[in-house]
Design a protein around this nucleic acid. Structure first.
Lengths: 341, 341
DNA sequence: CTGAAAGCGCTTACAG
DNA sequence: CTGAAAGCGCTTACAG
């Protein structure tokens, strides 16, 4: 390349003795170019070590070929799986998928919006798992604002009356089928560690409650402990739960919001000399690879992160306003057994 | 905004009754603008719902404010941690960090280079952990080519004579201190599951061999099994190892290339009715959060991914050609005990 | 402090 | 099939 700067289309044109329009046509590859001219231009491109500027091209075409995914914690393998699948699908469609961290508090804000808009992102996927149940009105207003600039898809979870496109995990179904399975094994004192979202239709808590109802098990509020989605919180929540109950009321099964919380809960149970599954059965969520290697192997729900990620990209690219629910499959392992009594 | 398109600086200028230069100055915020003019322009920006185009700005300034990180598998929480820390550091410096998947085969290729160059990326971080020991000359040639367009930093691992900037994990030290610790506990039949890279100075295998030497333990090639960095491979490798040995020669300790491999090895040991640590001690690498929740809790090496990630960004931004080594710390847990004999 | 004008590196009608 | 020219939305010397 020319010293100090990248070669441009002008350098190539001069070198080849043609106009920049012709060089552009060669790069584009869409239009017919006379073979001898083509060769001259190709040689000039080689000689100049020329690479077209995607920035200039995008600027001209008024697109960025860039999509965005906004996630809370990439360190969580569950999100990493979603992102990976989405990235791959986006790449296949000629887009790059950029990652933006969710602002602290897990709610979107103006700063994030400005970043997305100024970058002229072609579409954004927002993870709503820990977001949409806080400050819903304000969040919706911000999303509406964002929608004026680009397609937006909500991911993982969305408010019940969310008016735009969404691809959500069947959180309700996760909890529902777990409770049903536990009931079939004779459990009736089933605890729940997770978000308490009584008014959200597609929530684990509602699935938990309604499944209890269907199984004829009375709902007890003190079996539900609010819990953030990490190991430490799981451990703390489990301790809290046991402390609040008499031994006779100890649960015989625990449903956790995700796998780390389940691991934390198992640790707490162990420190209380409670055996898993002999005393308490445990079910996590997301079926991360390490669950199979926990002792006892942790039961979990396969929430299909890959499918979630690639579906979100598909919907984004067709600017869909559909609501899609991704089902989950219960995977039973050694951490679950029949209740003793 | 004007129907059908985003407002531009021209719309705002017309609305405010000033020139586009003045609007630009207001946006930039660097130059003094007469307070009344400032107000007029601000009002016009509001009214037009105007957001400056970062694409146009970058295009004009000939920068992208974008850095790239090329990683093999984001699904591995170890890489996710590196990326997270790097992303944060980049954001603090006003850059966006884009993720690019390593091409299959874990070696960089022309297609990847073109993507980076055409996007006018301001700097690239390449993960060399599984890359630099394959096809080294070709890889180096490609990197040299890339270096003509942007700063490049090699991450995780680099060839011994790598001429450019690198921030690498002390893989040698990882293995070395693990072997030393095991030897101190009376182990002498120590197996190694990982990459066999006899000629690479900063490799686990060399650390393993040299530590054995220092401890007066003869090196046996059949205690080393080549192994990819995932659970399945770990399990297979462990099975292979045991199959190839007589019972009397079974190792009393195993060093694994990372935590998933260690988990796989533990599973294989279990299926051979070998206890951990009663029969065989196991050490993983990277100290992922779930290691503490394995049964028995897995010993590992904390390789400081956060520090690795943020250091790489720092070096990239100052276009450094230094070589930096990030040390690792052995974390002993229940999976390691003294040798029986 | 403000405006007119050139330029960043491309694409794409429009003529020829 | 090819070239001249306008334009994408900004920034930034240069005058005034």
């Amino acid at each position: 390349m020319a010293a100090g700067r990248n070669a441009t289309i002008y350098d190539v044109a001069k070198e080849a003795g043609v106009s920049i329009a012709t060089v552009s046509r060669v790069i584009g590859g869409k239009t017919r170019v006379n073979p001898p001219t083509l060769e001259k231009v190709r040689a000039a491109i080689q000689k100049c070590n020329y690479r077209p500027s995607a920035i200039a091209r995008d600027f001209n075409r008024k697109v960025s070929h860039t999509l965005a995914m906004v996630l809370p914690e990439l360190t969580n393998p569950y999100y990493a799986q979603i992102y990976s699948a989405a990235h791959e699908r986006a790449a296949a469609a000629g887009y790059v998928l950029m990652l933006f961290p969710m602002p602290s508090g897990n709610t979107i804000d103006e700063t994030l919006l400005e970043l997305l808009i100024e970058r002229r992102i072609d579409g954004a996927i927002l993870n709503g798992e820990y977001m949409t149940h806080r400050n819903t009105d304000r969040q919706l207003a911000l999303i509406k604002q964002l929608k004026e600039f680009m397609p937006v898809i909500m991911l993982g979870s969305a408010p019940s009356d969310y008016p735009y496109g969404s691809v959500v995990t069947d959180l309700y179904g996760c909890a529902y089928q777990a409770v049903e399975a536990l009931h079939a094994l004779g459990h009736s004192r089933i605890a729940f560690l997770g978000a308490i979202e009584t008014d959200v239709p597609n929530s684990r808590e509602r699935g938990y409650r309604e499944a209890l109802g269907k199984c004829g098990i009375p709902y007890k509020a003190n079996y539900c402990v609010k819990c953030e989605p990490d190991v430490k919180s799981g451990e703390t929540a489990m301790h809290e739960l046991l402390r609040s109950l008499t031994f006779a009321d100890y649960p015989t099964a625990v449903l956790a919001i995700n796998d780390p919380v389940a691991l934390g809960a198992m640790k707490a149970l162990e420190s209380h000399a409670l055996g898993v599954p002999s005393d308490v059965s445990v079910i996590g969520c997301d079926d991360q690879f390490y669950t199979a290697y926990a002792k006892p192997a942790l039961s979990s729900l396969d929430t299909q992160p890959q499918k979630t990620g690639s579906t979100a990209i598909d919907m984004l690219l067709k600017n869909s306003d559909e609501h899609i629910t991704i089902g989950a499959k219960l995977v039973l392992r050694a951490s679950v057994s029949a209740a003793r009594d």
